[in-house]
């Protein structure tokens, strides 16, 4: 059915580990500098990058069959839908005038 069960070289795992350590150092360093609203953006971008590295290389999704890839994408797509719908509610509440009551 598939030929994805190949063994990755050890070096690949150590390179990914080093990258994850580097991104951890970056996120701590950036959090110490006041960038205003950009701080959250950088923190999230670094966390997402680290997660993608773990998923693709440590969890072998990069060499997984299409069905597995689709499942992973679907999992995060549904998360995105939940976040988007919740935030559209809470972020837009202040746009409307206070209800005056009955």
């Amino acid at each position: 059915m598939t030929s994805h069960h190949h063994v990755e070289p050890k070096k690949m795992y150590f390179v990914i580990f080093a990258a994850l350590m580097a991104f951890t150092a970056i996120t701590v360093a950036v959090s110490r500098v006041d960038l205003g609203a950009l701080n959250v953006v950088v923190a999230l971008a670094v966390a997402v990058t680290k997660a993608v590295l773990v998923i693709l290389f440590f969890m072998h999704v990069r060499s997984s069959p299409p069905l597995t890839k689709l499942t992973v994408v679907a999992g995060f797509l549904w998360l995105a839908i939940m976040i988007a719908l919740m935030l559209t509610d809470y972020l837009s509440r202040a746009w409307l005038p206070e209800p005056k009551g009955w």
């Binding site: 059915m1 069959p65 998360l79």
Partner: peptide, 29 residues
């Protein structure tokens, strides 16, 4: 065969993890 068995269990585990993503995702939101 063994390949199909492995692919199936990896797929099943990711379905479980998709549920876990929603579980922790709810807390994150």
């Amino acid at each position: 065969d063994m390949d199909q068995q492995l692919d199936s269990s990896v797929f099943g585990m990711w379905v479980f993890l998709a549920q876990e993503i929603m579980f922790f995702g709810g807390l994150f939101v």
